[in-house]
Design a protein around this nucleic acid. Sequence first.
DNA 1: AACATGACCCTAA
DNA 2: CTTAGGGCCATGT
Length: 110
Amino acid sequence: MMDDTEQPLITNEFLQVVSLIPYGKVATYGQIAKLSGLPKHARHVGFALKKLDNHSDLPWYRVVNSQGKISLQKENERGENLQVLKLQNEGVFIVDGKINLKQYQWNTYE
DNA sequence: AACATGACCCTAA
DNA sequence: CTTAGGGCCATGT
């Protein structure tokens, strides 16, 4: 039997890392890619997340770009961004559409 | 196979 | 501070 469980990409690696982002913290696309061992694939992190369903358990909303801005532009009927709401709900302050990474970025050192 | 696209990143100006 | 350009590479057509 053929067992073609081959992934479109190494998507699972990305999602694995995303699931590790602590509550109330955020990580950048590049950071996720790097931690997954694929530093050149920052773009594909977003690509992988886009293919997710909104009812996924993954904290996809904790992923922002390197400038601390929300990359997802999609809005609901109220003109609100779901990612913004999710983050604010975790206590992440967003000023002028930007997040202070110095304060909220997931520090993988230690 | 070639071309366009993308929830990006980095540097220069 | 913002914008522009080049780099990157899997996916879709």
